[in-house]
């Protein structure tokens, strides 16, 4: 599935909820289902600054594709991270760099996050793209 197709799928999944409570319950479930990072990987190198909750993001490059694993100490944040990982993981650095993550707005996540919190969300996206840029230049080099 392309990044675009994955986003469409997520928007469709969220469209069945018309109540914020259901939407958050869904996010919480996604958070609970996300594989945890090992304690060893929850270190400063993988920690993303700028979130009220702690977020760790670990990238891995295999056969030209970037695979992300991530974790957070807050469940709703884990749910949000799980969505980002699902959309961007397994794609090439170029695809990740070019991705327009419209689903965030479309499932009403951005409106539901206050500016400082949404900065945290933006910090996660920025970090994922930065890893893609770094891998991309490494692959060219």
């Amino acid at each position: 599935m392309t990044i675009e197709e994955k986003q469409e799928k997520i928007v469709e999944e969220f469209s069945v909820f018309d109540d914020w409570m259901d939407r958050y319950n869904f996010l919480i479930d996604l958070g609970k289902d996300l594989d945890v990072l090992s304690e060893k990987d929850k270190n400063r190198d993988y920690l993303i600054e700028g979130c009220q909750s702690k977020v760790w993001l670990k990238p891995d490059l295999r056969e030209g594709r970037v695979y992300f694993s991530a974790d957070s100490d807050a469940i709703i944040t884990r749910g949000i991270v799980a969505l980002l990982v699902r959309v961007l993981s397994g794609h090439t650095p170029a695809e990740i760099m070019d991705a327009d993550l419209s689903f965030i707005d479309r499932i009403g996540l951005r409106q539901n996050l206050s500016p400082t919190r949404s900065n945290g969300l933006l910090a996660m996206v920025k970090q994922m793209k930065l890893y893609a840029i770094a891998y991309s230049s490494k692959m060219k080099g």
Binding site: Y24, I28, Q52, S53, D73, A74, I75, I76, T77, R117
Partner: peptide
């Protein structure tokens, strides 16, 4: 987590 509680 306090952040989850605050959001809800």
């Amino acid at each position: 987590h306090m952040y989850d509680a605050g959001m809800i």
